[in-house]
């Protein structure tokens, strides 16, 4: 806690000094400052489409810290929550491609959200230059201790109708759970919550019997024994939860994880992109960032921007096929 406070104070101090030096430049109305010859030409704004304090926000702040050091300018993180991050992403995608504006991308926005909203509202990677991939965050299905459910098998055998909490419409939690239930032929009531924490609390109080939430959120409760982990949805076992089987091992074709990457508006100059890629590399190599990943139970997936585009587009296609095959509609639940 204290560490975080001092870090924020430092960051805001850095931002203030940077702004002070900028203030001499004059007005910002009409046309804007068109001096973008060199990068960076001032503080780089890092937009996050999620609320402050959530896992996405924390990742952005952890990376921004290292990048700011490498680039030598302040990187203030700006939260613009809304529509799973679509609002923030659309906004940044429409900005000038000078590298002064970055956005943290959640894979679910590209791969899953399009399954839940109208085609014209979906976000596509075509409008963005992906700088680099960052990490993988796994979903885990947990059951309340009172429900007596201890494995996926118990779900299929359950005689009473169970309720299943998700973390919202168009999220990986919803997709993974819907696919698993469809493949296991389990009937249940789907109850959407607005984020992970209430969905988990509801399981702890047996308000719903099962929820699928992100591992980082569920781990303390799993360790405390207040909820029972059933299955993780990553393609391989998660290093932080090695004794829990994956859905694929259990015989279900449900490879769903949350991935995160950094992107900028399309059309960056080669030098700017290189500078940004280098700064991300420097940031993720730092020990503080590595221990951040460990403490928040994130698996590093530091791949290039091009790899991110191919992998995410492949996943989007796969999810589309699976939902059609099992006749799942994410929007009407």
């Amino acid at each position: 806690m204290k560490q975080k406070i001092t870090r924020r104070v430092m960051l805001s101090l850095a931002a203030t000094t940077a702004a002070l030096s900028l203030a001499a430049c004059g007005g910002n109305v009409g046309g804007g400052s068109a001096d973008g010859a060199t990068f960076p030409s001032g503080p780089v704004t890092f937009t996050v489409g999620q609320a402050p304090g959530g896992s996405t926000d924390l990742i952005a702040r952890a990376v921004a810290e290292g990048m700011a050091e490498k680039l030598g300018v302040a990187i203030p993180v700006v939260n613009k929550p809304g529509a799973n991050g679509a609002l923030a992403t659309e906004e940044v995608a429409a900005m000038k491609a000078d590298g002064q504006n970055l956005v943290l991308l959640n894979a679910s926005l590209i791969t899953i959200t399009p399954l839940a909203v109208a085609a014209d509202e979906a976000v596509s990677l075509d409008k963005l230059d992906v700088i680099a991939g960052l990490s993988q965050d796994d979903y885990v299905m947990v059951a309340s201790t009172k429900s007596g459910v201890k494995s996926v098998e118990d779900l299929t055998k359950s005689t009473s109708k169970l309720s299943f909490g998700t973390t919202g419409v168009g999220t990986g939690s919803q997709l993974a759970q819907a696919l698993l239930l469809a493949q296991a032929k389990v009937e249940g009531t789907i109850v959407p919550f607005d984020s992970g924490s209430p969905a988990l609390t509801a399981v702890m109080g047996n308000q719903v019997q099962v929820s699928t939430v992100q591992l980082g959120e569920a781990k303390p409760q799993i360790d405390a024994g207040t909820v029972t982990p059933l299955v993780v949805f990553s393609s391989e076992r998660n290093e932080f939860l090695p004794e829990v089987p994956t859905a694929i091992e259990a015989g279900y074709d449900v490879p769903v994880s949350q991935y995160r990457a950094i992107a900028a508006p399309k059309g960056l100059s080669a030098e700017t992109k290189t500078a940004l890629v280098e700064s991300v590399k420097a940031a993720v190599a730092k020990d503080t960032y590595k221990s951040f990943n460990e403490s928040t139970l994130l698996t590093p997936k530091e791949i290039s921007g091009e790899e991110v585009v191919t992998e995410w587009n492949a996943l989007a296609a796969k999810y589309k096929k699976l939902t059609e095959q099992y006749n799942i509609s994410l929007a009407s639940n």
């Binding site: 809304g82 529509a83 609002l87 994410l330 639940n333």
Partner: peptide
């Protein structure tokens, strides 16, 4: 804004600032 149960937009009149 967006209905969290169905993802439908309500009373936003296609204004992006109200989508949220």
């Amino acid at each position: 804004g967006r209905d969290i149960f169905t993802g439908a937009e309500r009373f936003t009149f296609d204004n992006l600032s109200l989508a949220d």
